[in-house]
Amino acid sequence: MGEPAVSGAGAGQPPPIRLTVNGAPVEVRAPGSTTLATVLREQLDLRATKIACERGECGACTVLVGGRPTMACVTPAALVREPVETLEAVADEVTDLRAEFADRGAFQCGFCTPGQLVHGAALTRRADELRESGDLQERVRTELSGNICRCTGYQAITQAVCAVIARRATRMPEGAR
């Protein structure tokens, strides 16, 4: 945890926002209320993170902050104190989940997919806990209810995440939590 970020939109250059994104420290200058999603997409050129509602209601912008799924479109970048992970970095961790997505038809248009995968990655890191929590499918469906998909009816997404959880032991990649 770094210093609490303080930033404002006073005269002149806004104070810097220091973030750790996908393992690398970065410093950006933006008004304090600038969202994490805007910083990722427009300043850091990390465009896997999608914007679909800008109100924190659909999950397309899901990234991990301190390992926790977070709506980047309503998170002020200035309040982010823990490491940020986006699909650009998470993709290699979840090659098995990505393959399950492909095999089961868990994406069609693909626009919500980065958010689903990032959230799915967070769930697979909790594989042991989730496996022991009773009805895995129901649990995964509830956990993923903040990630809207208009194409698939969620079926294949749920099955893909469950399949990976079922066979994966919990592991904690460096930098998470």
Binding site: R47, A102, F107, F111
Partner: peptide
């Protein structure tokens, strides 16, 4: 046959650009 979507790897890496990603 049941085959994977053609661009599944890029799609699931988030590297396939949608229009707003071209800005």
């Amino acid at each position: 046959e049941r085959v994977r979507p053609l661009d599944w790897d890029a799609r699931t890496r988030g590297t396939v650009p949608y229009t707003a990603d071209l800005w």
